[in-house]
Design a protein around this nucleic acid. Sequence first.
DNA 1: GCTTGTTTACGCGGAG
DNA 2: CTCCGCGTAAACAAGC
Length: 317
Amino acid sequence: MPRPGKSSYSEQKPPYSYISLTAMAIQGSQEKMLPLSDIYKFIMDRFPYYRENTQRWQNSLRHNLSFNDCFIKIPRRPDQPGKGSFWALHPNCGDMFENGSFLRRRKRFKVVRAEHLASKSHQMIHYFHHPHNQTKMGLPPSEGSPVPSLGRLPHFQSYNIGNISGNQTSGFKHPFAIENIIGRDYKGVMTGGLPLASMMHHLGYPVPSQISNMVSSMWPHVGMMDSMATMTVPQEYGHFGVPMKTLCHGPSQTIPAVPLPIKPTASLPPVSAIPSLAVNPSIMCPSPPAVAGTLLEPAISQPENKSSMLHSVLVHS
DNA sequence: GCTTGTTTACGCGGAG
DNA sequence: CTCCGCGTAAACAAGC
């Protein structure tokens, strides 16, 4: 691990995990999803360290993509030629990193099975199950199927939300906190944040504006999120120039979450000092949440460990 | 053959 | 000490 305080990490290994680097790359993209090759490119562009031994770290990175539930694979549309699938962040993985730090996650993001569904989740699911509400949202009715309506869309399956532990009292924003449940990015074309709305758009599905209105009426506190207090960024880390409002949850978040060490060792420059970030603020601060992202999960082609799971949590240790 | 993706295994280090 | 996150290696499959 390079020692913070040097003028540059350029030749040294960045203090970020592959998960962090991948999340940075994805969050930094306009569509909030990237093919593997572009993730490679992003990392190599910004971190000279990774221009060598590519076979080694790329293998590790692929391992992380497959192994970690926080990454979801999105099939290409037929009209999008190219190799491999797109990779995006799981809609509910927004709380993986301690205080926005990308150095080490506070807990692993893991998808778990549906038997742990919380009652609140059921209510939400019921709401979305109800044909009337689905119609209201511009979605096809589910016709009593156990799978929410969008689950029938070729690229999406049902996505239930639950709360395994029931613990929402600790400091961190539980993934089932409303801001996490509801997700992000609904209105803006390039506002970023939750990949799901973007994915829907990407996949050619309509993203009904009614949903955002409904969210506002159902959960008026959405947008009042406070999970990300204003942070400063250690100077040394600014050199990585990473767009990191990553995984942030809402418009009220006042700062772009630039990579921040869990144990800060230095003071930080303003984000604007990071060229790649200053250019397009929209990629750093996702717009309001997408309700769709909470109920629907992109169809994931992984069989057991990811796609067959019905909802997600951050697993506490 | 190369790239992409999945899976298993092992070791290391930090946190509790 | 145990647990967990992480990095790495490696085997393997699928698709081009």
